[in-house]
Design a protein around this nucleic acid. Structure first.
Length: 218
DNA sequence: TGTCCGGTTCAGAAACTGTT
DNA sequence: AACAGTTTCTGAACCGGACA
């Protein structure tokens, strides 16, 4: 019965998003970009029926807040174990086959640590030169504790440009390669505010599973 | 008036299951 | 293995409300 609830397609990823603090339908969509909205809607209802999540009105008409119940929160160990298992045993070449800049940037936005950055608004422009124009440039705008992700130029002065291939950045995010190694090799180019560039190790969020030791090599 | 958000609906494709 | 029926999933279109 438990497997029926948790093991249907996409469900573990939806629960992971909720465990990471996502509460809104469209934010869940961004976190699981290949899942269709109709199926997400269906899965949320199933999880609600199963007592894993509770949906409450958000205040905005028609919109709901989705939160894990105690039973849902109790799945944290299961979902994290699954993530660490994947990091340890799923071949990285397989993981790096389906690169997705929106998923990568969305996760970086979520995990970004604002405290090492100056206490003013900071704008960091990530550029993946090999991608098509509509997916090439991404902006992270950090203002206090608030972090926004933009796919169109927000118009602010850029504090730091981060230029690399999507593959390199994804490999760093996954913990397959080291940030410092890629920067030293010139595969990740940092231009702009030197202090922000220096502290990138502190504010840039990697995958929660990046530290897991890999059992299979590329 | 146009755009965005938070969904829902629906037709068709793909995958799965059971039968022969 | 082949086929037919069923289930699941996708992607596009759509809706209503909020907001600039």
């Amino acid at each position: 019965m438990a497997a029926e609830i948790v093991c249907s397609r996409w469900t573990a990823l939806v629960v992971r998003e909720l465990l990471c603090g996502t509460t809104r339908f469209n934010d869940l969509r961004r976190g699981v970009p290949r899942m269709s909205p109709s199926l997400l809607s269906k899965r949320l209802k199933e999880l609600e029926d199963a007592g894993v999540i509770a949906a409450t009105p958000s205040g905005q008409p028609g919109a709901m807040n989705y939160r894990l119940t105690e039973a849902g929160e109790d799945l944290r160990g299961v979902i994290m174990s699954l993530g660490f298992w994947g990091q340890r045993w799923v071949e990285s070449s397989m993981s790096l086959k389906n690169l997705d800049p929106s998923l990568l940037m969305w996760d970086m936005r979520r995990g970004l640590e604002p405290s090492p950055l100056p206490p003013r608004r900071c704008t960091i422009n990530f550029i993946y030169p090999e991608l098509s124009a509509d997916r090439r440039s991404w902006w992270l705008v950090v203002n206090g504790e608030k972090v926004d992700l933009c796919l169109t130029d927000p118009g602010y002065e850029i504090d730091l440009y981060v230029r690399s291939s999507l593959r390199t950045m994804t490999a760093v995010w996954m913990g397959i390669s080291q940030l410092s190694t890629e920067v030293e090799a010139g595969n990740i180019q940092l231009t702009g505010d030197k202090a922000i560039a220096r502290s990138i190790h502190q504010w840039l969020a990697l995958s929660p599973f990046a530290k897991a030791e890999r059992a299979v090599k590329n």
